[in-house]
Design a protein around this nucleic acid. Structure first.
Length: 671
RNA sequence: GGCGAGAUAGCUCAGCUGGUUAGAGCGCAUGAUUCAUAAUCAUGAGGUCGAGGGUUCAAGUCCCUCUCUCGCUACCA
């Protein structure tokens, strides 16, 4: 049984999700199916939790509306992309609510949970407890007045809601009060010995990143974790006196794997979850390691009747054009958009994401690389070889598989080269090394190209047609092998290829054979498997990325609220002058600081300013600027700064000098 | 300055528990070739494995120090 991390239904799916989870899981599953194994692939949307309720609130719609929207987009795009789920369901379904509820109740009845009462902020007007995100207030560190209960976005410090000065409810705006609330905790610490044994002793074969992270968690010591929250969106806690409480989203989400299996196989689902013979594999990203290796197994163990995962092949992250993928910054290639803009090119993306998969460390996706891999590998190596074999066969044998005569020594030598491809592919795939597996499959096409180049059937056609027949027969058999080898990776193209080769079945066990296509078989219509991608196309994608990013930044820009009024007195105390930059140099070992020598008209002084990311020293020398001259001097990086240059900051973070619109004398006052 | 990750051919990266002349793909150069979506095939160019030190019979691979790069965070008066 293969499970894939449940994508969170507050946005569409992007290439990072695909590369990390869904493409590898799909390759693995398709491979097992081809081998005739009894395998199911389980997926679904994760639809509970605070961020969805916040999004719903911001848009003025219900949480259900939000999850409906994204669930449908995600589901559709997975289908179109060829991720072959046996079921893709969702955690807002009735069957999931029932399953999660029962699961909790079972643990509850067994006395697994610890009940603890703690004090939490409560909104008396809205009559509900407030999650950390729902509380705003003044940050105790930087005095930012718009800090959240879990984090201050101005200074980046993570906070407890109780740290905030002047806390306010984000729902009603009222001042919340502390009130007692009861929650249930899963005592992970009690399972530490079991986990230690199971993972550290029993699963040394797990990927180093997974094993390492588990080890570090176990070494730090585990704490009980709350499994419930005060919220009205989610699976209600099925216990008396738990009104207004739901299961915490990390508790309910992995149970989604079980619910979805139930939905798929109402009668036989237990075979997959409770039979020791079943191998369960969780495909996830690195952010999910702890939940799938520590928390969920503990839940399953505590319940008692479930099996534990056999492996958790977590991938690292994929970056995009050198930058982290980010939903909120819109720095992503969205799957549903890709499918629209590159119709019929699912396999190109599948190929690129696999060839460059973040299996051992974070990797970078670039459109240039996408183009290069398509043009130089898919088109030039794979597509071209198939096309050569097809065209030659059509030309000399009217598109029928020719008779294979006696093999030359060279033929058998070529065969040797790909005899063991099956074994190698299997060993790579079964150890989750899909990048290497794909490379191996590609090598088969290279062997084909080399074979044609070395035997030169187009020359022999003038003298020895029998020999040409043997060569093409073997070439076509290689093509047939390609159709099988690529089936898990590039299902669309492999299907197309099989159609061209009149190969109705795809039987993995025939991989490596050289009699897959019978002699005399009439081949289908030849068509190109892949087509070149022009420069303009990828340039447009890069431009689009930059544009949407910019647009998004501007859209998200909200002017800071006005500060409290000050008196005229206060204003006149500030002495702002027009000055001129005489010298400028970067401050060593800093990224943003520049040291400036300013002629203020009154004197010449040194000012340190954080503009080095936006201007070079040459650009600023000679410029007139506005400068606050009577600011208390301050040492920055050991340099005394005597004043402040006034800058305007644009929505995209770019700085602009505030300077007079016409030249004035240095020292002129700004009032 | 703090925390985390990293530094291997022009580029993107492999190199597991230390062991023969350090690898792949792409790019580049030269040659071959024309069946093929100017695609293919061959050959090659020599990277002091960031620097220095240490452990060892033996280190890209282990230890220490330093430098640099990339994230996040200070510094933006």
């Amino acid at each position: 049984m293969v499970t894939t991390a449940l994508p969170y239904a507050n946005g569409p799916v992007h290439i990072g999700h695909l590369a990390g989870v869904y493409v590898p899981a799909d390759i693995y599953t398709r491979y097992l199916r081809l081998k005739g194994e009894d395998v199911i692939m389980i997926g679904g949307s994760d639809e509970h939790g605070v961020p969805i309720t916040l999004k719903a609130k911001a848009e003025g719609v219900s949480p259900q509306d939000v999850v409906d929207r994204y669930h449908n987009i995600i589901k559709k795009s997975f289908e179109d992309f060829g991720i072959s789920f046996d079921i893709y369901s969702r955690t807002s379904s009735a069957i999931h609510h029932q399953t999660a509820s029962d699961f909790f109740r079972t643990l509850y009845d067994k006395g697994v949970f610890i009940e603890k009462t703690s004090e939490q902020y409560y909104d008396q007007e809205a009559h509900q407890f407030l999650a950390d995100r729902y509380i705003t207030g003044t940050c105790p560190h930087c005095k930012n007045e718009h800090a959240y209960g879990d984090q201050c976005e101005a200074c980046g410090t993570s906070l407890n809601a109780t740290d905030l000065i002047n806390p306010r409810s984000a729902i009603s705006g009222s001042t919340p009060v502390m009130r007692e609330t009861k929650h249930w905790y899963l005592p992970l610490d009690k399972y530490e010995d079991f986990l230690r044994q199971w993972i550290l002793e029993g699963h040394k074969e797990w990927k180093p990143n997974v094993y390492g992270q588990c080890k570090s968690w176990l070494d730090m010591g585990l704490q009980p974790r709350a499994v419930s929250r005060d919220l009205d969106w989610g699976v209600p806690v099925p216990v008396e006196g738990a009104e207004g409480k739901v299961l915490y989203v990390w508790f309910d989400a992995p149970i989604g794997y079980i619910s979805n299996t139930k939905e798929l196989l109402p009668d036989t689902w237990e075979k997959y979850w409770k039979d020791e013979e079943t191998k369960m594999v969780h495909f996830i990203g690195k952010d999910n390691i702890v939940f799938h290796c520590i928390v969920f197994p503990t839940m399953l163990k505590a319940e008692g009747s479930y099996i534990l995962p056999e492996n958790v092949p977590a991938n690292e992250f994929l970056n995009l054009e050198g930058d982290k993928i980010s939903t909120s910054r819109n720095w992503a290639v969205w799957l549903h958009e890709y499918l629209e803009e590159f119709p019929g090119k699912q396999d190109v993306l599948r190929y690129v994401l696999t060839a460059n998969a973040p299996e051992t460390k974070d990797n970078d996706f670039t459109w240039k690389d996408f183009q290069a891999r398509n043009n130089n590998e898919l088109v030039a190596i794979l597509g071209n070889f198939v096309n050569r074999a097809m065209v030659l066969t059509r030309k000399y044998f009217a598109g029928k598989v020719p008779v294979c005569g006696t093999m030359t020594e060279y033929d058998t030598q070529t065969l040797e080269d790909f005899k063991n491809i099956k074994k190698e592919l299997e060993s790579f795939i079964e150890t989750y090394r899909f990048r290497d597996a794909l490379k191996e499959a590609m090598n088969l096409a290279r062997i084909g190209n080399k074979y044609l180049a070395d035997t030169e059937p187009w020359k022999l056609a003038k003298t020895d047609m029998n020999r040409v027949g043997s060569i093409l027969n073997l070439s076509l058999q290689i093509a047939a092998n390609l159709a099988i080898a690529f089936e898990p990776f590039l299902p669309f193209s492999a299907g197309k290829l099989r159609k061209m080769l009149s190969m109705p079945q795809c039987d993995w066990n025939r991989l490596g054979d050289t009699d897959i296509l019978p002699e005399g078989l009439q081949l289908g219509q030849a068509e190109l498997l892949f087509e070149k991608i022009e420069d303009a196309v990828v340039e447009a994608q890069i431009q689009k990325l930059l544009d949407t990013k910019k647009a998004n930044e501007l859209k998200n820009y909200t002017p800071q609220p006005a500060k409290a009024n000050i008196s005229f007195e206060d204003f006149t105390r500030m002495d702002i002058r027009v000055g001129q930059v005489l010298e400028a140099e970067r401050v060593p070992k800093t990224t943003k600081l520049m040291k400036l020598k300013i002629d203020t008209g009154i004197d010449r002084r040194t000012v340190v300013s954080g503009i080095a990311e936006h201007f070079t020293p040459e650009e600023v020398v000679g410029r007139q600027v506005s400068i606050l001259v009577n600011l208390e001097p301050r040492k920055i990086k050991g340099i005394e700064s005597q004043g402040m240059i006034l800058m305007a900051e644009n929505a995209d973070g770019k700085l602009v000098f505030v300077q007079p619109s016409a030249e004035v004398k240095n020292g002129s006052q700004v009032r």
